[in-house]
Design a binder for these strands. Structure first.
Lengths: 216, 216
DNA sequence: GTCTATAGCAGGATAGAC
DNA sequence: GTCTATCCTGCTATAGAC
């Protein structure tokens, strides 16, 4: 846990350390003393670089979370391009993969989802930021892609609910590891994560009425 | 917000007030002062009745959350019985309805989901409690019911993933009201909630490969 | 059982040495 | 820029009056 990240500039170390702590415990539960200890610098450093604790939290989103979110979106487009398919299954798989197997370490992906989940659960100023800069445009993009890919016209309203249903599963399976492991009896190995990814894609594809399984 | 619940015994008022606050803000973010103010009693009351803050949190689960969870399960069985159908659609609808339209006020349902979501996100001693007493037996019950209802045999492992996919949507649509409203452009009226319930049931039913829509 | 008063401590923030 | 020392607020928890 004690991440005596001695490498880069203190400001960066504080951003890294505090993001991990905010994600894990939530804003209020984290103390400045804890942060600077993990970042390997002095108590005064947070106030020196960020003025106050609250600013640090917002800077974590500005300097870490949002750039990473853009990379995830980029990874989605890359997945789609590489798969060479723009059908519904291709889109859903690229979407799920971008979150579940994206261009980051396991730890970083969890951190990312946790911070988002916290803002979803109890929105703060940070929510408005990511809603505007990240969520809104991405939802728009996905809706456009899906609309083109679907054989029959579907109402935007319905399409959005479907997207949210897919997204809810992605969030849950990244976030709720404890109950998922409890009920499935499996630890989060890379094999199991692949398994989950396949499940989400298959379930959602059928959920969209595009699946091949089960219809008799 | 200031719930000067002057009715019943102070102990009960504290349980009510603190459950609402813990659900809304999380354990660390809530202070004893805040709790007693909302409960309309004195600072010393929490320590008098519960010894320490942490115990109060656990008692909230013991005395409020778990009994409510049992009622939700009861409501599921009631839904199933009343609908007079034990097929897959009946089970899923009864499941979703028990959470989304259960035997409690809107506020109380949100409170319930939020507390659970917090324990899922960051499990504490309370998680072990509810996993053992509530989650495990209920998952077992649902798996048994579904297994009987499904036409073809499905592996337990797969069945559990499907259940979790359904559950993830229920949690998300209760919990993530802000983004859901943002993207759908709808407030959580009772009409919209019914709409959501129908969506979850339809999406999940098709996800199970039992739907009627979309297969050509 | 319920209150007031307060002990004792941890937190955020700052002043000022180096 | 980075540190130590410290202020001050607000917290949990308790002691003791009523």
């Amino acid at each position: 846990m004690v991440e005596t990240n001695q490498g880069p500039h203190p400001r960066e170390r504080i951003l890294d350390a505090s993001e991990a702590l905010f994600a894990e415990k939530g804003y209020e539960a984290v103390t400045i003393r804890e942060i600077v200890k993990a970042a390997g610098c002095n108590v005064a450093a947070v106030n020196y670089y960020f003025g106050q604790k609250r600013n640090l939290y917002l800077e974590v989103f500005e300097c870490r979370w949002i750039p990473r979110a853009y990379k995830i979106q980029e990874s989605f487009r890359e997945n789609l391009r590489k798969s060479g398919r723009s059908d519904v299954e291709g889109i859903i798989r690229a979407f799920a993969m971008a979150f579940l197997e994206g261009p980051f370490s396991e730890k970083e992906r969890i951190r990312h989802s946790q911070l988002m989940a916290r803002e979803i659960a109890r929105p703060s100023e940070a929510f408005d930021l990511i809603a505007k800069k990240v969520m809104r445009p991405f939802v728009r993009e996905l809706v456009e892609l899906l609309r083109k890919a679907l054989p029959a016209p579907v109402r935007d309203h319905e399409l959005i609910l479907i997207l949210l249903s897919i997204f809810s599963q992605i969030i849950y399976f990244t976030f709720a590891r404890r109950p998922v492991s409890l009920f499935t009896g499996k630890r989060y190995t890379s094999e199991f994560r692949e398994n989950l990814c396949d499940h989400i894609v298959a379930f959602s594809l059928r959920g969209l009425g595009m699946g091949n399984g089960g219809c008799s």
